[in-house]
Design a protein around this nucleic acid. Structure first.
Lengths: 166, 166
DNA sequence: ATCAGTCAAGAACGATCGTTCCTCAATCGT
DNA sequence: ACGATTGAGGAACGATCGTTCTTGACTGAT
């Protein structure tokens, strides 16, 4: 019953992932969301509760859509180079931004981020048979390379150093 | 002539570095700055021009106070482990935050960040005699480790893998 | 056909944002 | 001592923030 909604909720959340992944949380206004998501103000609050609610939903969606496939792919990585290449070529913008600017001020975000990064660590440790510390370091290194925006040369250079050891 | 200022400009800038290094740019309000810097609104605008002006000054101060000493220390690094330890133990919070959340939307910030990271790369390349790509990767790895907040175990684990190669 | 229920559309809310203005206090050179 | 100049203090600005309210259009079930 009632009037059918004129927007695709999945599509809206995906657009929110793109928006929140491109700018800081406070840099994305509700007006931005309304105009880019194809969802009107009222429906946005009815559907997602609040801006923060939508952010959390977008973050979880990002983890499900982008991090989970990465975990599966990492299971097939045979050396550090492959693992590094997989992580650095994944789209982790929102996770990175969440880790550095939202996690410190939002403990629910912090919990999601910590769990996601721990899952990546575990996947690397399992696939390569390395220590948890080294796996965490590899994850961190990959994040740093993503942060710098140059996934190709830096990742391969580091991988060449790590290859013979694993 | 005129009334002498009741605040220490250097001290105020240093407090601004701490504030901007701890939260996102939009998360630090002018009220926050006024109450933490010991500078009143009027003097803040008179002295620093604007919030963004103060941010740029704080960023440059951070580079001079924290990155420059790091560059000097890196000149004495003899292996990758030492370089990693130096970078990960440096206080680079503001640089990290600037790189990920301000550089994309403020080209002046982007220029400072790019130059600072390039300087770190160069210092590592010079000290270790490694390629520019590997130096950039080491810088990125260190930033990623800082980002994850666990400088000790991860950095040493990664360093142990890189040590015999340099 | 009618009523209940949902959504679209946009005006409007109070709060807070960065910034400016105005007034008074304090110190300088003369 | 006195006018000039600068900072302190705080009110106030318009703009924008996230959020809510009001109104009307549309659809499904009775």
């Amino acid at each position: 019953m009632g009037r059918p909604r004129a927007f695709d909720e999945d599509e809206a959340v995906r657009a929110a992932v793109a928006l929140f992944g491109g700018r800081a949380y406070d840099g994305v206004s509700v007006d931005d969301l309304v105009s880019h998501l194809g969802v009107h103000r009222n429906s946005l609050y009815k559907t997602f509760g609040s801006k923060r609610g939508l952010y959390l939903i977008a973050l979880r969606r990002h983890l499900a859509d982008d991090v989970r496939p990465l975990l599966d792919a990492l299971a097939g990585a045979s050396d550090a180079a492959a693992a590094l290449r997989l992580v650095t070529s994944a789209d982790l913008d929102l996770l990175l931004l969440a880790a550095i600017e939202r996690a410190p001020v939002d403990e629910e975000v912090a919990a999601e981020v910590t769990a996601a990064l721990a899952a990546v660590d575990q996947a690397i440790a399992d696939a390569l048979g390395v220590s948890a510390d080294l796996a965490a370091a590899l994850t961190a290194a990959a994040l740093g390379i993503i942060l710098r925006g140059n996934p190709d040369n830096a990742a391969t250079a580091l991988a060449q150093c790590l290859d013979p050891l694993t």
